[in-house]
């Protein structure tokens, strides 16, 4: 199994058939910090969308916790007008909370795709049950970083960035 979570998820998704019903929509999985772990569409918005998913879910959770709400059932989150919108479910992948989201358009049965999304995510989570994050690496990735390296890193676009 792949050593990092993004590749591990990509491998599992390839081996499972993604239900056509959800496949035609935009599906994203992000981790708790809003980092995109998977998307079925190469889209430059994936990164910003994932950041919002993390924010939306955590804000909702915080709101509910202020009210001392405790649920023993599956929590789901949705925003739609009956045929356009999105819904989210939580999946725990390798014991870490992650969120899967489907953004749908002209969907006659949002409830049904949410159920399918959940089932599909459960399969992914199940396949990844034994996945382990890479063994802890000792020390620091970069011991020292020079100002020149940072300048090069920021060496895009404007002169100002190079100054």
């Amino acid at each position: 199994m792949a050593e990092n979570l993004q590749d591990a998820i990509a491998d599992i998704v390839k081996s499972l058939t993604i239900p056509t019903r959800i496949e035609k929509h935009h599906v994203l999985i992000s981790n708790r910090d809003g980092v995109c772990l998977y998307s079925n569409k190469a889209n430059e918005l994936n990164i910003s969308m994932s950041a919002l998913l993390g924010g939306v879910w955590q804000a909702s959770q915080a709101l509910i916790e202020l009210n001392q709400f405790k649920s023993h059932n599956e929590v789901k989150l949705g925003f739609d007008d009956g045929e356009n919108g999105f819904c989210m479910v939580r999946i725990d992948i390798a014991k870490r909370p992650c969120y899967a989201c489907i953004v749908f358009e002209k969907e006659m049965a949002p409830g049904a795709i949410r159920t399918q999304l959940k089932l599909w995510c459960d399969k992914i989570a199940d396949e990844l049950k034994l996945w382990q994050p890479p063994a802890h690496r000792n020390g620091y990735l970069f011991k020292d970083v020079t100002d020149e390296e940072i300048d090069r890193l920021f060496g895009f676009g404007s002169k100002e960035c190079l100054s």
Binding site: H136, R137, N138, G139, Y140, L141, F142, K143, D144, V145, D147, I150, D151, L153, F154, E160, C161, S163
Partner: peptide, 20 residues
């Protein structure tokens, strides 16, 4: 950008995990 470059440098130097 001076501020952003400095915090970026500190963050990169603080990343855990050697390359071995």
């Amino acid at each position: 950008f001076e501020t952003l470059k400095m915090v970026s440098k500190l963050v990169l130097m603080n990343l855990k995990g050697g390359l071995s």
